[in-house]
Write a protein that binds this DNA or RNA. Structure first.
Lengths: 185, 185
DNA sequence: GTCTATACGCTGATAGAC
DNA sequence: GTCTATCAGCGTATAGAC
C-alpha cells in the first residue's frame, strides 16, 4: 500500500526532528508503526535515501507555503515565518530539520548534504527578498543588510526551538518575532 | 600521565564540535591520538562521563572569559561575545557545543543533560545582564526586552556557525554582530 | 597506565519464502 | 509487500596480563 510508505516518511520525520539523523534507527520506526525492519528497506533502500525523502518533502512544503503567504505584506510575512516555528515546536518537542541536520552535517551522505543545502538556500533567499521588498517599501529600516538580517532571523528562530525545548517550557517564539520586527522597523 | 587525559578531552571536544555526540566514537579518539580504545575507558569510564567533562570545562572557561571581559563597556561586551563565535568557527569547522548538544538532547544521558542546561543558563544570564546594564546606561534602546534579545543574540550566533560552515565559506559573524549592535542601539 | 582479547547488543542491509 | 532469518561491522564496555 502507498499508505505504508507515507507512514514511514512521517515517523522518520518525527524521529529526525526529535533525535537527529544519527539518533534514530530503522528499529525505532519498526516499533512505532508495527512493521518489520526489513519491510522498511523495501520502501526506502537506505537510510540516507529515507532522510533525503524527508528533506525533499520539506522543500516542496516550504515552496507551497511561500505561495500561500505571497499576498501578505512584508511585515506579515516575517510574522508568519515566526509562526511556522511556533507551530513546529508546539507539535511536541520537534525542532527545525535544518538546524538539526546542519549540526550533524559532516557525518551525512553526500546526496543528503546537497538536499539540505538546497533547503537552507531556498529559505534564506525567500527571507532576503522579503526584507529587501520591505526596505524598498519604506516599511523596514534603510540601514539594514537584507542578507545579514535574514541570517539573524533564520538562525535565531530555528535554534530557539531546539535550545529552549530542553527547559520544558515552550520558547517564546512570538515574543522573539515581535522584538525582531520592533528592531527592523 | 596526566597529559593523556587532557589530550583525550581535547580530541573529544573537537569531535563533538564537528560530528556531534552520536556521531563520534571511542575508536575515532583512538585513531587520532594513537592510544587503544580500552585505555580511554581508564581515563573516562563511560562516554557520557567524557562528554560531561567537555561541557564542564566549557562552563569553567566561559566563567573565566566573563571575568576577563568584565572591564569592557556593554557594547564592547556584545562585540567580544560575537568574536568568541568567530574564533570558534575559524578554528576549522567547529560549531557551538550548546547548539550541537541541545539538538541531540533527547538522546543524551541525564547527567549530561543537566550539564548542558547549566551552561546555557550561564551564558544567557550573562547576556541578559549586559543588555540590562546597557539599557540602564542609555547605550541600548529602552524598548528592548533583555531576556528576549539575549535569546535572539545567543541563538543566532551559535546557529550561524553551524549552518554556514556547510557552504564552505566562513559565516560573516562580524557583520552579524555589527547589524545586531546597529539594531539594539 | 596501556595493552590484548573478548563480550554482546544494535546497526543498516540482504536473501529468499510466502 | 511483508515476513523470517541471517549477515558483517561497529558501538560501548569489561577482564585480566604486562
Amino acid at each position: 500500500m502507498k499508505n505504508t510508505k507515507k507512514e514511514i516518511l512521517n515517523v522518520a520525520e518525527k524521529l529526525i526532528l526529535s533525535k537527529g539523523y544519527n539518533g534514530f534507527s530503522y528499529n525505532d520506526i519498526s516499533a512505532e508503526i508495527g512493521i518489520k525492519k526489513a519491510s522498511i528497506h523495501y520502501h526506502f533502500a537506505t537510510k540516507p535515501e529515507l532522510a533525503s525523502a524527508v528533506v525533499k518533502r520539506y522543500l516542496r512544503l516550504f515552496k507551497f507555503w511561500c505561495l500561500i503567504k505571497e499576498p501578505l505584506s512584508s511585515k506579515e510575512k516575517i510574522r508568519a515565518f515566526g509562526m511556522m516555528y511556533k507551530d513546529l515546536s508546539d507539535n511536541c518537542h520537534k525542532i527545525c530539520p535544518v538546524s538539526m541536520l546542519s549540526a550533524e552535517y559532516p557525518t551525512l551522505a553526500i546526496h543528503l548534504k546537497n538536499d539540505i543545502k538546497k533547503l537552507i538556500s531556498e529559505v534564506e533567499n525567500w527571507l532576503s527578498r522579503v526584507l529587501e521588498q520591505g526596505i524598498n517599501d519604506d516599511i523596514f529600516r534603510k540601514d539594514l543588510s537584507p542578507t545579514i538580517i535574514s541570517k539573524i532571523i533564520y538562525c535565531s528562530l530555528s535554534n530557539a526551538i531546539s535550545m529552549y525545548r530542553i527547559f520544558g517550557n515552550l520558547p517564546e517564539i512570538e515574543l522573539m518575532t515581535e522584538q525582531i520586527l520592533n528592531m527592523i522597523c
